[in-house]
Amino acid sequence: MGDIILDVRNQKTAFVTARGMAQAVDGVSFTLERGRTLGVVGESGSGKSVLSRSIMRLLPSNALVPADSRVILNGRDLTRMTETELRRLRGPEVAIIFQDPMTSLNPVLTIGRQITEVLTFHMGLKRRAARDRAIELLRAVGLPQPDVRVDQYPHQLSGGMRQRVAIAIAIACEPDLLIADEPTTALDVTVQAEILDLLQRMVRDRNMAMILITHDMGVVAGRCDDVAVMYAGRIVEKAPVRDLFHHTRMPYTAALLASIPKITDPPHRKLDAIEGRPPDIINPPPGCPFAPRCLRADAGCDAEKPVLAGTSRHQWACLNPLGEEAPA
């Protein structure tokens, strides 16, 4: 066991809306060790992004988090901290990369300014030193001509280059935990692999822990140590990546895996998208949230909400898991 960087216990996040309470994250618990990468996979609306913002305590004012939810980073409880204390952690201890590099960089500030402000605020660097360090960081993330780019504005860069800048900002203060929230979804396919490789290298070189959020099982496959599958705000299956792929227990995970396009597929084959829609999180069904879309669901699934069970290595929340076929 390495040292535990992040310990999330029973995180619940709900939003007050005109229609009622939307329970976006519903009792998520996991731990993450130094040097390891956790993939969080789910469809859009499954609560992945809200989870990442809940960890960073970056929630809008209509969000409600119950008092028994805990986020412990490096042994300190973020839920008990004041806004000022949290501010000192964001950057040096935990950093985030957002999905869309087109909108996550400020259009009216130069690239350099957006990096140096982190360095001057958190590390107390002087102007010149911060600038030199920013150029160094841009070189490290593989941006060509970093000494020119540092004075340019985001719109002068391509999407892939912008995401490199976002990575440079995130690693500027050498955080212990990096959250990458769909870092490649908005990018061209050709650039996606480059960015993911870069992220992986940065995390390995600096011995950070990373949470890689994605809706694409294919992204997790080669790049994560563990995978947590989320559905309707809950973790429904969690295991080391190899176990998850080879001994899938949760039908939802199986459906996600089936939706990865394979090289061996004939061209123009129709993708196996999962039938139906995610449940309404304002009025969730009483039983298993996946039951209405699940081929294996029976009457029991509609009545009872399954809880995470299994071994500490491989956990799943399902009443009729795969690999436990009832005798015919």
Binding site: R87, R90, T103, S104, N106, V108, E117, V118, F121
Partner: peptide, 24 residues
């Protein structure tokens, strides 16, 4: 999103409002 990122960078409310948000 860039305001969310500025918050994630640990910038103060004052700095976010005046440096990041006012001009745009």
């Amino acid at each position: 999103n860039y305001i969310a990122l500025a918050r994630a960078k640990g910038m103060s409310n004052m700095r976010i409002l005046l440096v990041h948000a006012l001009r745009p």
